[in-house]
């Protein structure tokens, strides 16, 4: 018994060929293409209008930090002890969250993209690219009991020079990061991703909760509310993962399971890249082992639809 028997068994188990004709899918595909092009056109116009408006109002050089200004982070009360952690690399490792799976098995994906997409904040796309300066090794000088300052932190690059290792934003908020995109992603998708990165990298929990509430974002396989999802240590881990994944990895496109709606899912990640997530502080070796036994990545995933709807952020299976 061997390969030929397995081939025969599979051939048998696959049943007969179809009596269904799929050639009629051409029309639906072209309609999807037109919708995508329309979404890209609308998003591009909105972006252009935003840029023109910013210049007209005296924004000037949008790539200047001064013109953007630091966002005001919202730091939860329970960050007092962790705010004094000083070594960025150590923080990245020791704060690695266990991305444990939600055990509940209800809807895993978000509502469809028919909800009203809120894409009225394209300013995030004007954020400057991350700098390539040396890693920040100095501990925060601010009073550890007060809110962390978003202006002092710089992203820490890993040994390979490509990975941007962020400290937990709720300890050290970071501004000026640019989301990693993909050529085929729609402008609306990228604007939403940039908005999420801006909120996460400054630990703007109120902003994230408001956005998730507005978008009916699915944040767990159960019924976790945005307030619960971003509360406590688990919320800090989620914020850290959100920022780290958006800034480091491109999205996978077209993987939507809700009919013909194309969507973007961060991160697009090969198995060889999984250890990077440990370096980023958003996964543990235990997580990697569980993904290996599962047969695929089931760590944090961020879903944004083509029209900019933030449909989900989930971990587990």
């Amino acid at each position: 018994m061997g390969k030929d028997e397995l081939r025969n068994a599979l051939d048998h188990a696959a049943g007969h060929g179809p009596e269904v004709d799929f050639t009629g899918t051409w029309g639906a595909g072209r309609r999807m293409r037109r919708r995508r092009q329309l979404a890209q056109g609308v998003g591009g116009l909105a972006l252009a209008a935003g840029l023109v408006g910013a210049f007209a109002l005296g924004g000037g050089d949008l790539l200047s930090r001064d013109s953007v200004g630091p966002a005001t982070p919202t730091v939860p009360d329970d960050v007092v002890a962790t705010a004094v952690e000083t070594d960025a690399d150590d923080t990245a490792v020791t704060s690695a969250p266990p991305t444990t799976s939600d055990e509940e098995t209800s809807e895993a994906t978000a509502p469809t993209a028919t909800d009203d997409p809120t894409t009225d904040d394209p300013t995030g796309t004007a954020a400057p690219a991350p700098t390539t300066s040396e890693p920040t090794t100095e501990p925060p000088t601010a009073d550890p009991t007060g809110p962390a300052s978003p202006t002092s932190a710089e992203p820490t690059r890993g040994p390979g020079g490509d990975l941007i290792v962020l400290p937990n934003p709720c300890d050290e908020p970071t501004t000026g990061l640019t989301v990693m995109g993909a050529p085929d992603a729609t402008p609306a998708t990228m604007e939403r991703a940039q908005e999420l990165l801006d909120l996460a990298s400054t630990c703007d929990l109120d902003g994230l909760i408001a956005l998730a509430t507005d978008q009916s974002t699915t944040l767990s396989f159960g019924n976790t509310s945005p307030e619960d999802a971003f509360a406590g240590e688990r919320g800090r881990e989620r914020v850290h993962a959100l920022a780290s994944l958006l800034v480091n990895y491109p999205p996978e496109l077209g993987g939507g399971s809700d009919g013909p709606v194309l969507s973007a899912r961060w991160p697009e990640l090969s198995e060889e890249q999984w250890p990077e997530l440990i370096e980023l502080g958003i996964a543990t070796q235990q997580d990697l082992d569980s993904w290996e036994s599962y047969g695929g990545y089931i760590g944090w995933r961020i879903y944004i639809e083509d029209d900019g709807l933030w449909s989900g952020m989930l971990a587990g299976d």
């Binding site: 899918t25 051409w26 293409r33 077209g254 009919g259």
Partner: peptide, 24 residues
């Protein structure tokens, strides 16, 4: 059918795949 084990879901999957192919 071998991926999903169900002939009806398989038809849905393939139809979606062909629609996406047509769009690109």
């Amino acid at each position: 059918r071998l991926y999903c084990g169900d002939p009806h879901i398989a038809e849905d999957l393939l139809q979606d795949a062909f629609v996406k192919l047509a769009s690109r």
